[in-house]
Design a protein around this nucleic acid. Structure first.
Lengths: 110, 110
DNA sequence: CAATTATATTGCAATATTACGATAAAGATT
DNA sequence: AATCTTTATCGTAATATTGCAATATAATTG
């Protein structure tokens, strides 16, 4: 055991979980926010912004990329990372939908 | 190593990461959606809805509760779980803010 | 082409998560 | 009170994550 039983859940549930999991670490939230802050996707220097060693940051970037939250394009010998809006829109619309549904119900319980 | 260095990040970043992490497993997304679907917070039978053993579900519920996404109240010998709207509003407004910011920028890169 | 710069990968240790059987706890039912 | 129902906890195995030093890779500069 120890491995998530993804096959038992819907694609949609797995997709949301994958995105959420990618943001389930403060370093990755910080990376996202840094990419938001700088106007264009400044290449590099994400490492300098974070209180973590370069290999660790590289790994977090990889996870964000695997989840589809950021893209990286080679720019000389540096790499230019930027946010993938589609993934964030997915999260945004998911939670927006939930919030409006909750609004309607105004929980008749607890 | 292996432990997240939360102390190096802002409270806000940690808070978002905690909520996101809690939804970083499809079973917990499924639980949330089930609680949305049933009108009132039906007590019990979450176990029957999920393809996981009872102790596993109990553990997932605990994590959702610890993250503040759900609340549980004792109702006889059963327990009535329901969504905590505040936590979901936090996520909703976070991603809404990000989406509008991204909209404005229309990424001048990559 | 040697040295530098920027990022990725490897390998590994520490810790966390996932899953479940067995069992406990606590109220409900008979 | 004995049993049933419902949920939690314990113990444990399998796997995943986090973090970093060392090293590799690849483009850039001198």
């Amino acid at each position: 055991m120890g491995a998530t039983k993804t096959e038992h859940f819907t694609d949609r549930q797995n997709a949301i979980a994958t995105l959420a999991k990618a943001l389930g670490h403060p370093a990755r939230v910080a990376i996202l926010e840094y990419l938001m802050k700088v106007d264009s996707c400044i290449c590099g220097d994400i490492v300098n912004e974070l209180p973590l060693a370069q290999p660790t940051v590289s790994q977090h970037l990889k996870e964000l990329k695997n989840a589809g939250l950021i893209r990286g394009s080679i720019e000389g010998n540096a790499i230019c990372y930027c946010i993938d809006e589609k993934a964030l829109d997915k999260l945004q619309s998911y939670f927006a939908k939930i919030s409006t549904k909750l609004e309607k119900k105004k929980s008749n319980c607890c």
